[in-house]
């Protein structure tokens, strides 16, 4: 429509203007909704580079599907654990974990059951599962927690942590705690900034365990014990809370 045609139009008066204006605003509103909605949808997607685990039938990652150059993990030979907690102590010493209530990077859980009038005690070591689809990383508003691109370890950048505690709520493994000294959330990082940084091959907890419950290593390296245990297992391997879809890198077996 050109200007001459417009001039021939009958003036509709100002009475109808507000309605048109409203329509215009509604259209604009829809466009803005689209933009925001795009963002909201984006916020629901998982971390694509960290979810590259396609072995749907098993909890064990398949060769060729490790997203990181070194893909660190741990396997717990659970029935070997006697609950001595030397691992807990070694972790506290190495990583300067505060002594106050609720602060730990690794713990030993205990279950007491009675079978045929005999008390049975079972121990289960737990720590951060360094998930491939880590719920804590997705929810962090400031990227204060992220997957280390070299090792796949979930690490903290303390100065960015606002202390909203969403990562604590999101973690299926209760692996995070508030570190009052750093005034930030803290967690196990497989000793990346302590022992691994010094060139050591094992985490403090794995090195301290007298029963060799914890086997730590690069899941991709065929020469490691963890590779052999995971790829040619003697017994069933499981992970904790597989239903959450977090794709953990800490595995459990008896043996």
């Amino acid at each position: 429509m050109n200007i001459e045609d417009l001039e021939k139009e009958i003036n509709e008066g100002i009475d109808s203007l507000p309605l048109q204006e409203r329509r215009k605003f509604l259209k604009m509103g829809l466009a803005v909704t689209g933009v925001f909605l795009g963002g909201s949808v984006l916020s629901l997607t998982s971390i694509s580079h960290a979810s590259n685990q396609k072995n749907a039938d098993s909890d064990i990652p398949v060769e060729g599907q490790y997203p990181y150059p070194k893909h660190y993990g741990m396997i717990m030979r659970q029935n070997r654990c006697v609950g001595c907690e030397l691992c807990v102590e070694a972790c506290k010493q190495t990583n300067h974990v505060p002594n106050d209530h609720g602060a730990w990077r690794t713990a030993i859980q205990e279950k007491i059951t009675t079978e045929n009038n005999t008390e049975k005690r079972e121990f289960r070591p737990v720590l951060c599962n360094q998930c491939n689809r880590p719920p804590c990383v997705r929810v962090c508003p400031t990227k204060a927690t992220y997957k280390d691109p070299e090792t796949g370890i979930v690490v903290m950048d303390y100065k960015k942590c606002i202390g909203c505690k969403t990562c604590m709520a999101a973690c299926p493994y209760n692996a995070r705690y508030f570190n009052e000294e750093k005034y930030a959330i803290d967690k196990c990082n497989f000793c990346i900034d302590t022992r691994l940084a010094e060139g050591k091959k094992e985490t403090a907890c794995a090195a301290a365990c007298p029963a060799r419950v914890r086997i730590f290593g690069d899941l991709k390296d065929k020469s490691t014990e963890i590779y052999r245990l995971l790829q040619t297992p003697d017994s069933k391997i499981w992970v904790l809370r597989p239903d959450t879809g977090a794709l953990p890198n800490v595995f459990y077996m008896n043996g």
Partner: peptide, 19 residues
């Protein structure tokens, strides 16, 4: 929130659009 001052800065310079 434990450290709202960090929020003011890092919400802007280190945003996580997945959060």
């Amino acid at each position: 929130i434990a450290s709202p001052h960090r929020m003011l800065l890092y919400n802007i310079i280190s945003p996580n659009p997945l959060s």
